[in-house]
Design a protein around this nucleic acid. Structure first.
Lengths: 197, 197
DNA sequence: ATATTCTGACAATCTTGATTATCAGATAGT
DNA sequence: ACTATCTGATAATCAAGATTGTCAGAATAT
């Protein structure tokens, strides 16, 4: 039940408790943040714009989040969850690396909005955001190259895979997924065992 | 005669014409911008901070630049010039790719301040800045893989090389250059002819 | 010595957006 | 119908930083 598929409920009231409504508003804000981010980038992801998208006003923003950064972080984590879940569906026991790559690019193609949150915008220097990004990186490296431990090699591997995704996204997902995977695969293989530093 | 090696002259006056002094102040601002950027990142690179570093006041800033972005752009171009020049000194006719890689990482190591301007901070969405960044990318790809034309492969190649540099820089240039080159080389070879998409 | 131009410091203005506060009308529970 | 709570809209406040403007004192040339 991806958050992305919620739709606006007609307005109720104390039929749902204060806590319930509060929770729903919070979820709507996270969803709105992701969509605004995807459409307008970090630049345009202003508190006002997000609230407008959610059909709420600033008051409710600060009811659920202490500040803007907190929502950014929440949105990022939500995106990470969804993309990794989507990615997992493409597992290929025969060729795990190709499966992971295919899943990665396919997941991005199916959620272009998420892709932008995930890849195209810098994550800022907030420590928690940094940590979240590193967590993502760790998980991805594990998928693409379970054996690689050298940090520099891991960095190169992710850099290649992700920058290919960036170029692909910026050009509007022009090439089919298989072609993108084919472009990335040699880099991933290059990072494999036997190429340790 | 790299701009980086200018030192503050004792203050003169109309001994040097208005235009001369103006030009010198402009150069000092570019230098200061690079240093502040390297020390404090884009965040800290405020007009006030740059002027303080240059020993000038805001008035002179706007004498030489229409706005902050213009100085950023100038600083970026200066850094690009210096790094590419430094890189060129490491050319190795026997193994051009290794030579280029070695030059790239060695240049970064010798100018850590420049490295940060160049790699660690996002370049913003100003079109001219984007163009400048793409120009750099084009030049680097030409050095690392003269034959590669497929855009996605080129993206992957640069992503690997640059993200290795990022990790290296963030860890304080821990490994020797040769080791970094060794980590990057397989990725560059992977992009070579025969791996076209 | 003096008029002119340059300089540095500093205050004033503007813009953008976050964060808080106010208020009149709407809704649920009784 | 009445009251307490909730809602949406809007305005007030704050902050950071860019961009301009003012001014008294310093340096120069004559």
């Amino acid at each position: 039940m991806p958050v992305l598929e919620k739709e606006k409920k007609g307005r109720r009231y104390a039929g749902a408790s204060h806590a319930d409504r509060r929770t729903e508003r919070r979820a709507r804000l996270v969803l709105a943040a992701i969509q605004v981010f995807g459409r307008a980038g970090r630049e345009g992801a202003t508190v006002a714009a997000i609230c407008a998208e959610a059909g709420l006003t600033a008051r409710y923003f600060y009811e659920s989040f202490p500040n803007r950064e907190a929502l950014y972080l929440e949105a990022y984590r939500e995106v990470q969850r969804e993309l990794l879940a989507e990615l997992a569906r493409w597992a290929d026991p025969g060729d795990p690396v190709r499966g992971a790559l295919t899943g990665f690019y396919a997941a991005l193609a199916q959620h272009p909005g998420l892709a932008r949150v995930f890849l195209l915008d810098p994550h800022g220097r907030d420590p928690e955001m940094q940590a979240a990004g590193q967590d993502t990186a760790r998980r991805l490296v594990l998928l693409f190259a379970p054996k690689t431990t050298a940090p520099l090699v891991a960095a190169g591997l992710l850099g290649a895979v992700i920058d290919i995704a960036r170029r692909w996204i910026e050009a509007g997902f022009a090439e089919p997924v298989a072609e993108v995977v084919a472009a990335a695969l040699p880099f991933v293989r290059a990072a494999g065992p036997g190429k340790e530093v």
